[in-house]
Design a protein around this nucleic acid. Structure first.
Length: 164
DNA sequence: GCCAACGTTGGC
DNA sequence: GCCAACGTTGGC
């Protein structure tokens, strides 16, 4: 299992919207680095759901990848602002995954608070001018956020897949 | 292949 | 609303 952070503007689509929807294609990512991370995701990976463009920004919940990367539908939709005329169904350029809600944090863990957590010291999220909307995190970072929020995820504390 | 111009992101 | 940082575009 790997761990990721997904940014979204809550005015557009926040964690509460995901909780309501039950499942959602994470489409519209139009940055190659972010796209390449999407392509590394597999079902079962956990994603911190980060609210950006709001005050304060921070992690609002945890989502789970429920479908690995497949072609982003919006790239083929001329009516979409995410349309990409260079993309064809035979040669798609952009990918999306499907995510589902897993846990709403009891309280937002703000960007300011992330800056105080040792596990986050080296995260690109905290780097000046960071704009990446999909980025890898690690188990310790996820755990530190859950701990700060006063909650846990049983799946996190289990050892990696037990050998049979 | 360089680089200036431009558009976008995102914290403040 | 401002502005710094960054990625992309397109002329050359």
């Amino acid at each position: 299992m790997r761990f990721w952070l997904l940014k979204s503007e809550p005015d557009v689509f926040g964690y509460a919207d995901l909780a309501r929807a039950g499942r959602e294609p994470w489409n519209g990512v139009r940055n190659y680095q972010a796209r390449n991370f999407l392509r590394q995701m597999t079902a079962g990976d956990l994603c911190l759901f980060y609210h950006s463009g709001t005050r304060p920004p921070g992690v609002a919940g945890v989502a789970q990848v429920v479908r690995a990367a497949y072609p982003d539908n919006l790239q083929f939709d001329p009516a979409s602002s995410y349309a990409d005329p260079r993309a064809t169904p035979e040669a798609p350029r952009w990918s999306m995954v499907d995510v589902a809600p897993l846990l709403a944090l009891p309280r937002l863990i703000t960007l300011d608070e992330l800056r105080t957590l040792p596990a986050w010291a080296a995260s690109p999220l905290l780097a000046r001018g960071s704009r990446l909307s999909v980025l890898p995190v690690d188990r310790a970072q996820v755990q530190s956020v859950l701990q700060a929020a006063g909650t846990t995820l049983p799946a996190l504390d289990e050892p990696a897949a037990p050998a049979l």
